[in-house]
């Protein structure tokens, strides 16, 4: 059963998966290009700064990969209003797990591509002393960020339209509350507080923030 589900999801995402894998493979190599063999240490600061600028693309790529794979896992069932899936002879949770497992397995592809690209970049680059390459760490972090994005979008897509309505409604309530707080000039930052909790440890998106770089001290 898992093979069959995996095949369908692979078929639905093979083109975007290829693009994601290529991008994941290329990103570390682009970083390495900036580390020219004769870079002196006083160039390293500027190089590291430009690497950090490039670093924004890693979490973006991870989030994109998660979104695409999650959406693709459910798109065909959404179109058929889930009749096919619900009429299959297996427990519903089992079916969801198959879909999630297939998407997670497919997410490994760009993660491995990134790891390979990072390994090659680390191997061919001569680093100034004191700088190190972190290919495995980078790929692992990318994979974790991708899985977070995948499970988040997967959970949202698996829900009913009523659930989506609740989520949007909750967000709307927070926004209205924040506006009301502003109107009454109360010193309370509701949205900021919630966003802060999401982005710092142990929030779900903590792994996305911070510095992303193949090379660092």
């Amino acid at each position: 059963m898992f093979k069959a589900v995996l095949y369908t999801q692979w078929k639905w995402t093979r083109l975007p998966l290829l693009i994601l894998a290529l991008a994941a493979f290329a990103l570390p190599l682009v970083s390495a290009r900036q580390m020219t063999p004769d870079a002196e240490y006083w160039d390293a600061q500027g190089l590291l700064q430009s690497l950090e600028a490039l670093g924004a693309f890693y979490p973006l790529l991870a989030a994109t990969a998660g979104l695409i794979l999650a959406a693709a896992a459910w798109a065909a069932d959404h179109r058929g209003r889930h009749v096919y899936a619900l009429s299959l002879p297996l427990p519903r949770w089992h079916y969801v797990l198959l879909r999630l497992g297939a998407a997670a397995l497919l997410l490994v592809v760009p993660a491995i591509a990134m790891w390979l690209g990072a390994l090659i970049a680390a191997t061919v680059t001569t680093l100034p002393p004191g700088l190190h390459a972190y290919p495995t760490t980078l790929a692992l972090r990318f994979a974790l960020a991708g899985f977070i994005a995948l499970t988040l979008f997967f959970a949202v897509s698996a829900g009913t339209s009523r659930t989506a309505g609740y989520v949007l409604g909750a967000i709307g309530v927070l926004v209205v509350a924040q506006i009301a707080v502003g109107l009454f000039d109360l010193k309370l930052q509701i949205l900021e507080t919630i966003l802060y909790q999401i982005y710092i440890w142990p929030g779900p998106l903590e792994i996305f923030v911070g510095r992303w770089s193949l090379f660092d001290v």
Binding site: A4, T8, K11, A76, G80, R81, V83, Y84
Partner: peptide, 16 residues
């Protein structure tokens, strides 16, 4: 209403 996955071929639909 037809409920099969339209992006599959007949053979793939059978295998699935």
């Amino acid at each position: 209403q037809p409920h099969l996955y339209l992006s599959l071929t007949v053979d793939e639909a059978l295998r699935y």
